[in-house]
Design a binder for these strands. Structure first.
Lengths: 223, 223
DNA sequence: TTCAAATATTACAAAATTGTAATGAAAAAG
DNA sequence: CTTTTTCATTACAATTTTGTAATATTTGAA
């Protein structure tokens, strides 16, 4: 949770930064240079990357391009060279923010959180081992694609965008079966739930994702 | 296009900023204060709002909250009070960026573009009068829902996320029919294009959205 | 425990989707 | 102009989706 990658060759600065961010609830991994940084990035999962511009073995711009080409993780430049050309360049290679040293700690945290928040509102909806990639209209379980029909897909999207929130039968019916004044029977929903469970649950008889709340409706919950 | 709302009570600053941004290809609407600003915001459609913190008839924070509560338009604070507390506060009310005066023009443009770009990668895909709401998995034409099958939906999403870009037949087939090592004949695509056109084009015989580029592939274009 | 309500499951027909093949039309090449 | 290639259109069967109804099963309350 709140895993951050810091790529910075100034060890003492890195130390103090890590300490501070840790005190703010982040868990920080530190890489000293480009090679190191990319390796770490590809091994672990980070919610945000803090990147120094000038490194011993490469510059921040190329790392940023590299990271952005293979993922969507937020990247924030953290650098002494806050000159305008570098800043513009930073955004051009896909950075999410660019902060000049010396940084003010609370602002730094605010900007990191901002970047993470923006990223979180992105097209990937997840619930335990099931992911919907809304930017492609595809659902995957354990990275293996599951084919959902149009309505199954919509129903699951509805659940996942309201993860943890109870949805009444009425609300669900309204949301899904109001596209042409159609009216469908009440039992239809039961059947759709069953079909979704059969496709996404490890053990459909003991659903861990699509929970029923008796008398009230259904909700999707995380593991 | 690139319509920006500037809410700023310093007239001379606003003038020079507007001029500069216009020279960069933005079209800027200017409001002097809070009341004015909100009115304009609700009347027109903006891609980004630039907001001064201190206004005669209200403060920027409340405008920002207001805007964010009713839309997702990027908001950037532009302010003299670049003190840390204000900055943090700005992000807390939902700002997308916070820039202290005096601003460096090219950086300002870079940050505006950054905010707009981030926002553009959001859930609404549009092409002339057809909209895909990926956050619901629904397609609408002139605000009227169109029912697409699972694969039709995916195909259209593929086109819309690559608006204006040519997609080769091969690329399309790869993207759509590789979910289980299936191989489908080449003519399948022709048929899907036809089916989509029948559903989304005003005159399917003269497609204005899904254009064929003979010998190369297809692309979606805006009106 | 017994009962009633709510949900799960199954089975089934009507309708829609999906992929293919055959035929037509349009555009580029010769 | 003719040929060839590419794409559009149509028609069709296999499959899947979709909604319903009928039958279990579960749950909570009496």
């Amino acid at each position: 949770m709140r895993n951050i990658l810091l790529i910075e060759d100034d060890i003492s600065l890195a130390k103090s930064l890590s300490g501070f961010l840790a005190s703010e609830g982040f868990s920080v991994a530190h890489a000293l240079g480009m090679t190191d940084g990319i390796e770490l990035f590809e091994k672990e999962n980070f919610e945000c990357v803090l990147l120094d511009l000038s490194l011993d073995d490469g510059n921040g711009f190329s790392i940023c391009s590299r990271i952005k080409s293979e993922s969507d993780t937020p990247v924030i430049f953290l650098t002494a060279s806050a000159d305008e050309t570098c800043t513009v360049m930073g955004f051009e290679v896909g950075a999410d923010d660019y902060i000049g040293k010396p940084f003010r700690p609370r602002e730094l945290v605010a900007r990191i959180k901002n970047a993470i928040r923006k990223h979180a509102s992105q097209p990937l909806l997840q619930c335990s081992n099931v992911i919907i990639d809304t930017s492609r209209g595809v659902c995957r379980k354990n990275n293996c694609e599951i084919f959902l029909s149009a309505l199954e897909y919509r129903l699951l999207v509805l659940f996942f965008t309201n993860k943890g929130i109870l949805l009444s039968r009425e609300k669900i019916m309204d949301e899904l079966w109001t596209f042409s004044g159609e009216f469908v029977g009440d039992s239809t929903l039961n059947v759709y739930i069953k079909r979704l469970r059969d496709k996404i649950e490890d053990d459909p008889a003991n659903p861990q994702i699509l929970k029923t709340v008796r008398g009230l409706g259904y909700k999707a919950v995380d593991a």
